[in-house]
Simulated assay, not measured.
Amino acid sequence: MRIGPRTVLALAALGVVCVATSLTLFALLHVLPPSASLDWTRRTISQYALLPNGWVFDTATLLLAAGSAGILIALHRTGVLRRGAVIALAAWVVGLIGVVWFQKHSWSGGGPSISGDIHRFFSLVAFVSLPAGALLAAAPWLRHPTPATHASAAQAPAVHAPAVHAPVSASAVGDPRAARSVALGGAASLLCFTPILYALISQSWTGVRWWQAIPLGTFERLLGLVEVTTVLLLAWWAIRATRTRQPSTDSLPA
C-alpha cells in the first residue's frame, strides 16, 4: 500500500499529540484527588488504576499506545526501521495495552491474582522492548550513516525502503543526529531500568523484597519519562526523514 509523505507526517504528528496528551493525564494523576494522596516514591504508576479515578490511568496508557503505534507506522514507512526494531517497538505497544487489559495485584482486595501476574509480565515487556527497539532502529545508521560509508554498494544486499510516492534515500532517512538521539534515549532507558533489575536479582541473597529494596515508584516514573521521551525522539526522526527525503534508489545499510 502506497502512503504519501503527508500521511506519514500526519501519523507522526497525531502520535505526538496522543503522547503529549498522555503525559498531561499522567501528570494530573499526581496532583488531583484522590490519586494525589498516593505515595509516588514507592507506589507504581499502575496503582492509579485501582483508584476511583483509575480511568484516567487507563486512558493515558491507551493514548500512549495509540500514539506510539502511529509513530511506529510513520517511521516504518520512511524506510528507517528493520524487522527487529519493528517487532520490538510493536511489543512496546502490545505491552502497554496488556497493562491496561490486565489489572495489577490488589493487595487490599484479595491479594495476588492471575491477572496481576499477567499485568506484571506485560509491564516488563513494555519496559524492555522500547529501549531494545530504539537501539535496534538506530544501530544500522550509527554503523553506516549513509551509503557513502560502504566501500562498495555491491558488497551488501539491498533492502529497499517502502514506497511513499517517491523513493526515500538512505542519506535522508539515515540521519546520524536523529539516530544518535534515539540510541541515547534507548541507552538511558536501559540505565534507568538497571536499579529495578538489580532489586529483582539481589532479592535472592539480600532477603529484601525487590519492591522494598528501592524507591520503586521513583525509578519506575523516571524510566517511564525517559521512555516516553524516546518515543518522541522516534517521532522527530520520522518527521525529519519525511521532510528531507530525496528521490533516490539508495537502500538501507546492510
Results as ranks from 00 to 15, higher is better:
residue 86 V to F: 11
residue 145 P to Y: 02
residue 27 A to S: 08
residue 28 L to C: 05
residue 51 L to N: 02
residue 49 A to L: 03
residue 72 L to N: 09
residue 129 S to W: 00
residue 70 G to P: 02
residue 104 K to L: 06
residue 138 A to I: 03
residue 86 V to R: 14
residue 113 S to P: 06
residue 24 T to A: 14
residue 67 G to M: 03
residue 96 L to Y: 11
residue 74 A to V: 06
residue 136 L to K: 04
residue 45 I to T: 15
residue 37 S to M: 12
residue 55 W to C: 02
residue 101 W to C: 12
residue 137 A to C: 05
residue 143 R to G: 08
residue 115 S to G: 12
residue 95 G to V: 01
residue 78 T to R: 13
residue 71 I to T: 11
residue 95 G to E: 00
residue 61 T to G: 01
residue 119 H to I: 00
residue 110 G to T: 04
residue 79 G to S: 07
residue 71 I to P: 06
residue 109 G to H: 14
residue 75 L to E: 11
residue 57 F to V: 02
residue 145 P to T: 07
residue 53 N to A: 02
residue 78 T to V: 13
residue 137 A to E: 03
residue 55 W to K: 12
residue 131 P to S: 12
residue 66 A to D: 02
residue 129 S to H: 10
residue 80 V to D: 12
residue 70 G to M: 03
residue 133 G to I: 07
residue 92 W to G: 09
residue 50 L to Y: 01
residue 120 R to W: 14
residue 41 T to Q: 15
residue 36 A to H: 14
residue 30 H to E: 14
residue 132 A to R: 08
residue 134 A to K: 07
residue 128 V to I: 15
residue 143 R to N: 09
residue 135 L to D: 00
residue 120 R to Q: 15
residue 61 T to Q: 09
residue 73 I to C: 13
residue 129 S to Q: 11
residue 25 L to S: 01
residue 123 S to H: 12
residue 123 S to C: 14
residue 114 I to P: 02
residue 129 S to Y: 01
residue 25 L to N: 00
residue 88 A to E: 09
residue 135 L to N: 05
residue 42 R to F: 05
residue 91 A to N: 08
residue 97 I to E: 09
residue 70 G to F: 03
residue 47 Q to V: 15
residue 36 A to K: 15
residue 81 L to F: 09
residue 123 S to I: 02
residue 77 R to N: 05
residue 145 P to Q: 01
residue 40 W to P: 04
residue 130 L to N: 08
residue 70 G to T: 06
residue 110 G to I: 00
residue 91 A to Q: 07
residue 33 P to S: 08
residue 51 L to Y: 07
residue 46 S to V: 04
residue 137 A to R: 00
residue 89 L to P: 06
residue 144 H to W: 08
residue 32 L to K: 12
residue 34 P to D: 08
residue 136 L to W: 01
residue 123 S to W: 11
residue 50 L to Q: 02
residue 76 H to L: 11
residue 84 G to P: 05
residue 48 Y to A: 13
residue 124 L to R: 09
residue 110 G to E: 10
residue 137 A to F: 10
residue 105 H to E: 05
residue 111 G to H: 07
residue 54 G to F: 01
residue 98 G to T: 08
residue 115 S to N: 11
residue 27 A to K: 07
residue 30 H to L: 13
residue 72 L to V: 07
residue 64 L to N: 13
residue 66 A to H: 02
residue 112 P to I: 05
residue 131 P to A: 11
residue 121 F to P: 06
residue 49 A to V: 04
residue 29 L to Q: 05
residue 38 L to N: 12
residue 44 T to G: 15
residue 73 I to F: 12
residue 95 G to C: 04
residue 107 W to S: 00
residue 43 R to Q: 15
residue 117 D to K: 13
residue 66 A to G: 07
residue 144 H to M: 12
residue 52 P to G: 08
residue 35 S to R: 06
residue 91 A to G: 10
residue 80 V to Q: 14
residue 60 A to K: 03
residue 33 P to G: 03
residue 102 F to W: 10
residue 130 L to T: 07
residue 116 G to L: 05
residue 126 A to G: 13
residue 117 D to R: 13
residue 134 A to W: 05
residue 72 L to C: 08
residue 69 A to V: 04
residue 70 G to D: 06
residue 104 K to C: 08
residue 114 I to G: 14
residue 82 R to C: 13
residue 67 G to Y: 00
residue 107 W to V: 04
residue 127 F to H: 10
residue 66 A to Y: 09
